[in-house]
Amino acid sequence: MAALPRRIIKETQRLMQEPVPGISAVPSETNARYFHVIVTGPEDSPFEGGLFKLELFLPEDYPMSAPKVRFITKIYHPNIDRLGRICLDILKDKWSPALQIRTVLLSIQALLSAPNPDDPLANDVAELWKVNESEAIRNAKEWTRRYAMDN
């Protein structure tokens, strides 16, 4: 693998030394562009108390193109599909090199607090979120409890 760009090194260093509360990210042993991530479910959201595992990969021309991020822990959310793929504009056309691993993960955490069923990736979830929000939230809590909690 080609030498790691200094920007990636700087970001990694800072992630280790000044971690963002509620988010941890660590490079894999074998690939410095592949990060293991844990995002905690935000307070006052149906995901509160959950520990969600994600994977994040920095493509060759990062930061000129967006990191690839995916949930590994199952999550009931209208903008996250059953493969854990995330519908978030900054991961696609709204990417900017001024964003970083930490800001991307913060945005994903914010997406958990503010689901957007009008721009769905998981259609069935989004549908329920629109017609019966309280049931959808109940489902999201149940999935969080079942899959993302410690006990």
């Binding site: 595992k53 949930f71 590994i72 822990t73 199952k74 059953r82 899959y147 993302a148 410690d150």
Partner: peptide
Amino acid sequence: LLAQQRAKGGVV
């Protein structure tokens, strides 16, 4: 964490 979640069928 991952091992634990996988055991519960919680992995995507």
